[in-house]
Design a protein around this nucleic acid. Structure first.
Lengths: 208, 208
DNA sequence: GAGCTTTCGCTACGAGTCGTAGCGTAATGG
DNA sequence: CCATTACGCTACGACTCGTAGCGAAAGCTC
């Protein structure tokens, strides 16, 4: 997930794991203080207490470094078991909103997404480190709801996959847009209203 | 909307309107070719056939220039009158998706949103130039649907305003996330599925 | 412990961009 | 004709970039 470790050598001095931790933490700190465009790798190195060359030995550039630094923020995401589908969704949306409320996530996330428009490798890195981790929650939520009988089992697997993608884009997109574009907090009331509309739209009509 | 024209002088040589057009068009071209991070104002000036100093005389920096260049893409947005609320929504979402499908919009929009996290003036500029133009469509759509009887008139004005904001974040957020993060086209089928869920969520239950 | 391998911190470097200043010229209005 | 403003051009110091080279440090194997 982190830097380039294609073949971890068994001989020689091992890479300092503490340096990785310090660098990623320093990246988030500088991201908050200076923002994306004014963040320089020299600043990060100084703040982390490592040499600039050490940074370049582990990461290819600013984009990859920030993706890894932001990805760590999403480690804490997990699907709560609140008993009902509505409460589960509300819980996970609130978690997602809490992460996006942090300035280091706001500054970094949109910037790397913008860069990924012209860099397929970066887009894949974002997908593996951040997006897939979120989408997994949608799959878990559906399975759990089906086990409870709140959602019917899927007939067409292809349509089921499309629905998962659609729900994922709706949830993540709405929270991101609310937080970063409208610049207002995705608080409990907003999340509640949003969840109600989404859930009604999903369970209201069985089919078209 | 464009550069700084606080008090357009009546004396002296007037600013070339053709230069504005050429600069904004060149900005979009360079945005496609080089992306946000590698776009330099020197490139834009060369491509537009103007001097670099002319650029700095009109715009404060890269952020403001790109906001204006991208904002022009949203000029064509308008609410179609298809007869039913569902078709109206589908139409406007398709328009929005078509704009976001253009690489100059993808490269520029996310980048300036990311920068706006640390620049309130820039956020206000984005809101005035881009966001409000979209939100107006939501208001128009609701009025038209209420006139048709498809939606009930609003009782509580405060809740009505919250609902408009919520719908706006859901629509814009979902399309942006689908296009830029999931990196898949918001095509007719996707828009249709999305509209169905949204509309069911809105009209299904009158209240909680 | 000896020796090999890899990483680390440090310094220095050319290349490129930034935003500005200065100057002479072009285009308006009074 | 003249004041005023915009324009194109050049040059400048300051900064960041990514890399190379060096000696020292930290592991592993024998």
């Amino acid at each position: 997930m982190q830097s380039r470790t294609p073949a971890p050598r068994t001989t020689g001095r091992p890479r300092s794991a503490a340096a990785d931790t310090a660098i990623l933490a320093a990246t988030r700190t500088v991201l908050v203080e200076l923002g994306w465009s004014k963040l320089t790798l020299g600043d990060v190195a100084t703040r982390a207490g490592v040499a600039k060359t050490t940074l370049y030995r582990r990461w290819a550039g600013k984009n990859e470094l920030v993706v890894d630094a932001v990805a760590e923020l999403f480690d804490e995401l997990e699907l709560p078991d609140c008993g009902t589908l509505a409460d589960d969704i509300e819980g996970v949306v609130l978690q997602f909103a809490a992460i996006l409320a942090r300035p280091e996530a706001q500054n970094g996330l949109m910037a790397v997404v913008a860069e990924s428009c012209r860099d397929d490798a970066l887009r894949e890195r974002i997908r593996a480190s951040i997006v897939d981790r979120q989408k997994r929650l949608v799959l878990q939520g559906r399975e759990r709801a089906q086990a409870r009988g709140e959602l019917p089992p899927e007939a067409d697997p292809a349509e089921a996959a499309r629905t998962v993608d659609l729900i994922f884009d709706m949830v993540a997109g709405a929270v991101v847009h609310r937080t970063l574009v409208s610049a207002e907090a995705a608080d409990a009331r907003w999340v509640h209203d949003f969840t109600r509309i989404l859930l009604t739209g999903l369970t209201g009509p069985a089919a078209e």
